[in-house]
C-alpha cells in the first residue's frame, strides 16, 4: 500500500507542476482581458499609459536602431508623435515582415507602423487606417546585368522577403518567375550579393535607398504592378483606435508633418531622383 500511495503522490505532484506552468500564463492573461473586451481601445491605452507599437528594427530609414541603441526612422518618428498626441508612453515591439498580422491578431501590439502596405488580402484580417505613404514594387539587379522589364525575369530566380507586397505580387501575377523567399531584409540582400538570384523585388522606395548605398546595383524596374499605400494597421474591429488614427493622420497631413518627417529621416537616404511628393501623400 505504501508503495502505491507514493507512486500516486509523485504522479499527482508532477502533473500539477506541469499544469501550474501552463496555467500561470493563462491566469495572467485572464486578468488583463477581463478588464475590457478590447485591450487596444484608445480608452484602454490611455488607462495603461503605454501604447505598444510594432516597428521594424532592421529597415533603415523607416524603422531601425542607430549606433547608440535608439530606435529611429520615418515610422518611428510617427510612432513617437502618435504616442505624444495620445498622451501616453510608447513601447516598441520589433517585428519581421511576416509576423505583423499575427502580432496584431494575438494582441501583442496595439498598432503597427512597420512600412505596412495595404492589400485586399490583409484588409480581410486586419483594419488599415488612412495611408501616410505611397509605394509600388520595384526590382533591383546588378548594374552589370540589369533587369529592365518583367519579361527578363521569366524562369529566373527572384529574391523576395516573405510576407511582403513584392512576394504577393509575383506569386499571384507573375507565376512564371521562380521566387527565393527569405525571412528578413538582411537575408534577402545577402542572397542578392551572393548571386542567388538575378534580381530582388521589394518596395521601390526602399530599393532606391538601398541602391544609393550599393552603387553596383540599380533599380532597373522602378514600378511594377499597381501603386499601393502604406498605412497604420490595427486589429480587425478595433474601431476606437482606428477612428482615432484616421483623425491623427488627417491632422498630421494638414500640418505637413510627413514632409518634415521625409526631410529629416528619408531624404538623406534616397538618391536625388526621389522627391517628397513621390512618397508623401498630398493634402486633400
Amino acid at each position: 500500500m505504501k508503495k502505491r500511495s507514493l507512486t500516486r503522490l509523485i504522479a499527482v505532484v508532477s502533473v500539477f507542476a506541469t499544469l501550474l506552468l501552463v496555467l500561470a500564463g493563462c491566469g495572467n492573461s485572464k486578468k488583463s482581458s477581463s478588464q475590457s473586451n478590447n485591450p487596444s481601445s484608445v480608452q484602454q491605452i490611455k488607462k495603461n499609459g503605454t501604447i505598444r507599437i510594432a516597428v521594424f528594427g532592421d529597415l533603415p530609414p523607416y524603422g531601425w536602431v542607430n549606433k547608440d541603441g535608439k530606435r529611429v526612422g520615418y515610422d518611428v518618428t510617427l510612432a513617437h508623435r502618435v504616442a505624444k498626441d495620445l498622451g501616453v508612453k510608447v513601447k516598441f515591439v520589433q517585428v519581421n515582415a511576416n509576423n505583423r498580422v499575427d502580432a496584431l491578431n494575438s494582441n501583442k501590439v496595439d498598432l503597427v507602423l512597420a512600412n505596412f502596405t495595404v492589400t485586399p488580402e490583409r484588409k480581410q484580417v486586419i483594419d488599415f487606417a488612412k495611408p501616410y505613404m505611397k509605394v509600388s514594387v520595384g526590382v533591383v539587379s546588378p548594374k552589370s546585368k540589369p533587369i529592365t522589364s518583367a519579361s527578363q525575369l521569366k524562369g529566373k530566380n527572384v529574391i523576395v522577403t516573405k510576407g511582403t507586397t513584392a512576394e504577393n505580387y509575383f506569386t499571384s501575377k507573375q507565376q512564371n518567375v521562380k521566387l527565393l523567399k527569405f525571412d528578413s531584409k538582411t537575408q534577402q540582400f545577402n542572397a542578392l550579393k551572393n548571386g542567388r538570384g538575378v534580381a530582388l523585388a521589394d518596395d521601390n522606395s526602399y530599393l532606391y535607398a538601398w541602391s544609393k548605398n550599393n552603387p553596383k546595383y540599380t533599380v532597373g524596374i522602378k514600378s511594377i504592378g499597381p501603386k499601393s499605400y502604406i498605412s497604420p494597421a490595427v486589429k480587425k474591429g478595433n474601431k476606437s483606435l482606428l477612428n482615432w488614427t484616421n483623425k491623427e493622420i488627417n491632422k498630421l497631413t494638414k500640418e505637413s508633418f510627413f514632409v518634415k518627417d521625409y526631410n529629416s529621416q528619408l531624404k538623406p537616404y534616397f538618391g536625388k531622383e526621389v522627391k517628397p511628393s513621390d512618397i508623401v501623400l498630398p493634402v486633400k
Partner: peptide, 12 residues
C-alpha cells in the same frame, strides 16, 4: 536579433 539591427544600420 540585435546583431541584425547593427548589420542593417551599418550596411551601407
Amino acid at each position: 536579433n540585435i546583431g541584425q539591427q547593427i548589420i542593417e544600420a551599418n550596411n551601407h
